[in-house]
Design a protein around this nucleic acid. Sequence first.
DNA 1: TTTTTGTTTGCAAACGTTTGTAACGAAGCT
DNA 2: AGCTTCGTTACAAACGTTTGCAAACAAAAA
Lengths: 346, 346
Amino acid sequence: MAMPDDSLETSLADGQVRTITDLARLAGVSPGTVSRALAGNALVNARTRDRIQQLARTHGFQLNQMASNLRRQKTGVVGVAIPLGHDRRQQISDSFFMTLLGHLADELTEHGYDLMLRRVIPDRDEDWLARFTGSGMVDGLIVIGQSDQFDRIEEAAAAYLPMVVWGNHQQGQRHCVVGTDNRLGGRLAAQQLIAAGATSLMFLGDTEPMEFAARFAGAGDVAARAGVPIMACPTHLAIDRMPDEIAGHLARHAGQIDGIFAATDTLAVACLKALQDRGLAVPQRMRLVGFDDLPLAGQTVPPLTTIRQDIAAGARGLVDLLLRRLAGEKTESLVLPPELVVRATA
Amino acid sequence: MAMPDDSLETSLADGQVRTITDLARLAGVSPGTVSRALAGNALVNARTRDRIQQLARTHGFQLNQMASNLRRQKTGVVGVAIPLGHDRRQQISDSFFMTLLGHLADELTEHGYDLMLRRVIPDRDEDWLARFTGSGMVDGLIVIGQSDQFDRIEEAAAAYLPMVVWGNHQQGQRHCVVGTDNRLGGRLAAQQLIAAGATSLMFLGDTEPMEFAARFAGAGDVAARAGVPIMACPTHLAIDRMPDEIAGHLARHAGQIDGIFAATDTLAVACLKALQDRGLAVPQRMRLVGFDDLPLAGQTVPPLTTIRQDIAAGARGLVDLLLRRLAGEKTESLVLPPELVVRATA
DNA sequence: TTTTTGTTTGCAAACGTTTGTAACGAAGCT
DNA sequence: AGCTTCGTTACAAACGTTTGCAAACAAAAA
């Protein structure tokens, strides 16, 4: 048996081995064989396969993914879109979304997928969804937050299967969604506030986004049944406006209310500070419940009572459903149960 | 002039217009012309150009990026790698890195680049860097945090130009880095603690990672000059171990020290809680300074004195330098000045 | 009319893979 | 010896763009 031609090998050694063809020349076989060898295909003889893999390793050969993707018509990349609809500065700094993103990265990596992150501003870019799905750059799409794009997502879902959305579930919707049962979460929050002695409630947060609207509605359910009034106080999530707005709300209504349901832990923490600034004892004079159970919720003084969203489970659900859709399955939505975490603010 | 053949057009209308060739047939021109028309190339007649663009719009045509990328040998994608070296669970949930990531997404989007996120575990994957740079999937690379991969990054930088790293700058290093002057930050922190009356210091945090080591060293400089002792108390950043470890440190040393420099705001906030649990008044009995100035630093009670890193500026710097490197420039590193933010804990 | 110039288009060769099909020996069978 | 079968490899056609070059054509100049 002839050894691979040494002189040929060294004559190429200086010029980088970039393409599969370079490698083929080096190994004295055809490009097709190299491709199969690198893929571990059983069609190619075990000895040649090892030899080629060895050669690839020593020369630091890297397969060109672009070409591979084009040929195989798949990319191994999942797109993650964060639409910034109603409050442009909100989400990107919102630690809930960032934490979810982290878990998504974990989960996708685990399954051999890469993650392509794209922030989209729907008002500026009409067909952000079509651009992403049709670009050929991603095999599937995860959308974090419906924002105010429910209709557009709904429309896209009709034609584009491999898409899963984090958000709120609505009766009879078409697109596959994963999310917490926000309405139930709202009920739990209001129940706890009332059980802790509250007789008049404030909902702190915007009621425009679907998730928040559902939380408010859930709290409303319970409040109505208990004969307790509840008022909504819209507040931006942007860190620079939040404190002032909360202070304003408290200044106007602090006398009339004795329980606050914050749409988000971030809001709750800011609110807690505002309450302490006003000298209102928590939970004696004012009860407070948050939403999310971010890590910082346990770190406040007093520690925050809140409604827990299981972010890790959410990420697992998103990825699991997406993978099944990539395999052609037509999956149902997944609604996760929220959990009341009683600490010290209510 | 003949209008585009209507019967032909409708005969294709049902079958999706996927490729540039479909569109060419529809418009009665060659694929090359369509390509140029869509690119807005001045070579093609203005009228045909408009007609083709209109046609593309009405049929919802999307250029296949994969093919385009392969042909042009560029992708419009920047890779962002987060190496999880020394403390696997740390970084992904660490709000500093997440915030930086958010700003990076902003900044890259602004310049027309997409962002491909990849978490890498160096121990499991020897040549994570080469895989990323050589895959052909990204035009350039931003590495967030040197972790314990300084040498590997240094080595890769020799051959691969378009790479910028967030981290600590060391005398004479090869790779281009953007980061805060951690040593100076450490000095500022220690100065403030001592000015506030501290006479014996604790450094709360791991001293392994380069950034933290530099912060500790800076504090050490000042402490030594002032004749104040400082001890390092290694602490994990993982949220589930942090509180217990801090409580342990305090139990052992609380009597001997009266000032704490926490390597991170996250640590500082947890420490603040632990101090309050022990009934140690801040800042009367114990002074505390953090690092980062995360949004939550202003929300604690009392609000946290800390060393500010300008994350947004860091992100801008990273992207700016990367773009210049993509253009072939050989750029210098960028060291950002930290800033002391005096609130109420020291 | 012929030549020149300029504008607009088509042709075909890349980009670097993957994969169906054919080809080629060698071995096993009648 | 002829036939099939099997294991291994080479060949070539895709995948959907972009782009240098040549061709076609019209208008202007000679």
